[in-house]
Design a binder for these strands. Sequence first.
DNA 1: GCAATAGTGTCTGTAAGACAGTATATT
DNA 2: AATATACTGTCTTACAGACACTATTGC
Lengths: 247, 247
Amino acid sequence: MNVPNYLSHLSVDNVIFGYHNKQLKVLLMKLNNNNYWMLPGGFVKEDESILTAAKRVAQERTGLSELYLNQFKTYGDPHRTKDARIVKLEAYSSYTFDHQAPETLDSYFVSVGFYTLTEFSKVAINKGPLDQDCNWFALDEIPELLYDHNQLIVDAVKSLRLHVDHYPIGKKLLEKKFTMPEIQALYETILDRTMDRRNFSKKIMKSGIITKLEEQRNIGAHRAPYLYAFNEEKYNEALKNGIASIF
Amino acid sequence: MNVPNYLSHLSVDNVIFGYHNKQLKVLLMKLNNNNYWMLPGGFVKEDESILTAAKRVAQERTGLSELYLNQFKTYGDPHRTKDARIVKLEAYSSYTFDHQAPETLDSYFVSVGFYTLTEFSKVAINKGPLDQDCNWFALDEIPELLYDHNQLIVDAVKSLRLHVDHYPIGKKLLEKKFTMPEIQALYETILDRTMDRRNFSKKIMKSGIITKLEEQRNIGAHRAPYLYAFNEEKYNEALKNGIASIF
DNA sequence: GCAATAGTGTCTGTAAGACAGTATATT
DNA sequence: AATATACTGTCTTACAGACACTATTGC
């Protein structure tokens, strides 16, 4: 049952986070012949890197190509895919887009976990040809998933929050020009805690990754907020070298 | 060339750090038919987890069985093992202890990187049956290694230092009873920077992971230092939940 | 003037870091 | 007494966190 096109016993799984309007969600899918939700994942071709494979999988479902993926952990336990609930032979062909799979889905798969962060209102969800369903779930409404995928999400969230503490985010999640309340809401949502407006503003301005513009945005019956934009140089430098824990 | 006993295209590589007397070293090996040093690594059996495989590999070379392994990153690029320097057919049989290898060593291997930290004076180095050599190297004397193994070491060091910032270490590296200068030397060596004696002592005592004993150690012609021991409860609790960046 | 949102400065406490003099043991 | 090591406390500074009032806009 070896299709030479794919590496056997190896897969990638993606935790695709979507942010929009103070909500953080995760993209889940459900196979045709199985009534359980799972993370979108796929196999690795013989001539591609694991990162490329993960990007391909993410792109297939979201349509977005410029995703910034982050590897967070690799799962390799012979029992992790022994899941009584999965319908063996019928399921595997739909896991990957081109209808090829190196083994049945309950054989031993070592899976490399990646996560990414997108703006979910920009995503046009694209079901796999044999997916039954594919949709966003809020973090506190994740159902029981196949395999160890609930654990993957827990680990990915932890990793994302650690990342946010040391690297800038927001370029792909906010408009080019955004307000201070908007970027604060982004951080508060991802870190799942509220922060003091004055302290937040002080700290993020001191880090230098955003710049205050002269413009304001008209928001109707309220005081107009100032607009900000990312400082490209500082932002990129911080992406590379990290920033001493801002939040 | 598929030996069903092992997962194909998958390996584990171990960065085995050894600490002793203010020195931090890495265990490297050299295959019989190849004049380049590399990290000890191995393959994953069909019925074992990647962690078990990595432990097996580490135990084979060090003789130590109670190692605490830490997964730090997975490497999967189709070109990572295309190394002109390796002697293809002759080399692979010696990579693993039981003379079986699923492919030649230059096929595509996705490798899961682990590191561990040991007391190197306790290690009886055990060459693989077909290893030409196996030895400790100081961090600043690592030669050019096969494949991407130099990068693995860089990443492992980074990961180790990050780990040390948030979790206690030392139980496997120091005697049951140790002095303040000894534990400080350990931290200074791993983090590769000196620290102020007074501040170090203040901070580590405040963290609660060590306790001052009544005893002192006789060190000859000098003032006798007090002995300390780890506080098991605090230590284990900190291992689980981490400690707010001590150093 | 009311409601809703945005904007900003100061104070306090804590913790980190710099720093030097005293104590002990041996010869 | 000389040497080598160990022990410890205070001061300063920076940063985090708490906190409240004013400004703008539309109705």
